[in-house]
């Protein structure tokens, strides 16, 4: 079998998972996309293990380790998502902006010009 087939399939699966991680809004769908990316890595490990004819099958042992770590990751991740949903009422990662920069939605920070804006006067009065 040509080695390009599993390698290209793994690359494409990884990129599909990458798109899902970046584009999805629900946190559980993001976790599903992470699973796709991990599976792409596993496919690479198995393909290269078969290609190299490793006598000890190190690639397959490492694949088992990756599968176990993915299982642990999905357990912890789902527990965190459930906790967030219980505390905030949503699992959408767009709305979890508790740590965002508060000046972000204005989008017009600008350099503070001295004595130019009248808006600064209120702030000066407030601080005075």
């Amino acid at each position: 079998m040509h080695l390009v087939y599993p390698a290209v399939l793994a690359s494409l699966l990884f990129c599909v998972g990458l798109y899902g991680v970046l584009a999805r809004r629900n946190a559980i769908l993001v976790l599903m996309s992470v699973e796709l990316m991990l599976n792409a890595v596993n496919l690479n490990l198995v393909a290269f293990d078969t290609w190299l004819h490793d006598r000890l099958h190190s690639g397959q042992a490492l694949t088992l380790f990756t599968i176990t770590i993915a299982a642990a990751e999905i357990g912890i991740g789902l527990a965190i998502v459930l906790l967030v949903h219980r505390n905030r009422g949503t699992a959408d990662i767009d709305r979890l902006t508790g740590l965002a920069d508060p000046g972000q939605p204005l989008a017009l920070p600008g350099p503070p010009e001295p004595g130019a804006a009248s808006g600064h006067d209120e702030k000066a009065e407030a601080t005075a």
Partner: peptide, 22 residues
């Protein structure tokens, strides 16, 4: 609303990564 607004940026990033990797 299953997808967020930056879907097209994500698509561009994924396509660029796919092209490079393949």
């Amino acid at each position: 609303d299953a997808d967020s607004e930056n879907r097209w940026v994500a698509l561009a990033v994924a396509l660029a990564a796919a092209g490079t990797l393949v």
